[in-house]
């Protein structure tokens, strides 16, 4: 079977780009919209979404995921910067934090994946597993308090910045 190891980072990039485009369009309509901080749970959400997409689109086990960590870190840093949602400094921190979160999610998801039933009836197992990991990431994030603990949340865009 063809490995298609590019699918994981590409899926992550597609999901992130779609979300950021949505933010840009909402911002266009309502510059004062309050967006949530881009924090650990959101990074985990996009990472797990990409892992799920890869699992369903290209079923296969033991596909290497570490090679996707670099594009993932770049995506978490570069794309918010390109969407004018992060300063270069924030982009660097987001990239580093995003890379780590992606690695943790990918490692955990792959570990679960090896233990799932191999028959086609186990369709929901990956989704439920990903949901559990997402909830765990939320619990972890509640231990952090924004920038005070070194994990830089993405500064929400304020439409009224530099309007005068």
């Amino acid at each position: 079977m063809k490995e298609r190891i590019w699918l994981l980072p590409v899926a992550l990039i597609v999901f992130l780009t779609t979300a950021l485009l949505t933010v840009i369009l909402i911002r266009l309509q309502n510059p004062f919209a309050v967006f949530p901080r881009f924090h650990v749970p959101y990074m985990a959400f996009f990472s797990l979404l990409a892992l799920l997409a890869e699992h369903y689109l290209a079923p296969g086990r033991d596909r290497p995921w570490l090679t996707a960590a670099i594009p993932a870190a770049l995506a978490f840093g570069l794309l918010p910067w390109a969407a004018a949602l992060a300063t270069p400094e924030q982009a660097l921190r987001l990239g580093a934090a995003g890379g780590v979160v992606f690695c943790v999610c990918a490692f955990s998801f792959r570990s679960l994946q090896r233990r799932w039933a191999r028959d086609p009836s186990a369709l929901l197992a990956p989704a439920v597993g990903a949901l559990g990991l997402f909830l765990a990431s939320q619990a972890f994030a509640s231990l952090l308090r924004g920038e005070k603990n070194g994990v830089s949340p993405l500064t929400s865009f304020r439409g009224y910045d530099n309007i005068y």
């Binding site: 590019w6 990039i13 780009t17 911002r27 510059p31 996707a68 594009p71 794309l79 969407a83 309007i163």
Partner: peptide
């Protein structure tokens, strides 16, 4: 890594272009 790099560059270019194209309208509305 080739397709990852292509996807990343394409996505960044798309976001940058949309951001630049909508910046004036956003600022005016703001």
């Amino acid at each position: 890594w080739f397709w990852s790099a292509v996807a990343l560059a394409g996505a960044a270019a798309l976001l940058l272009a949309v951001t630049l194209l909508t910046a004036d309208i956003t600022r005016q509305r703001a």
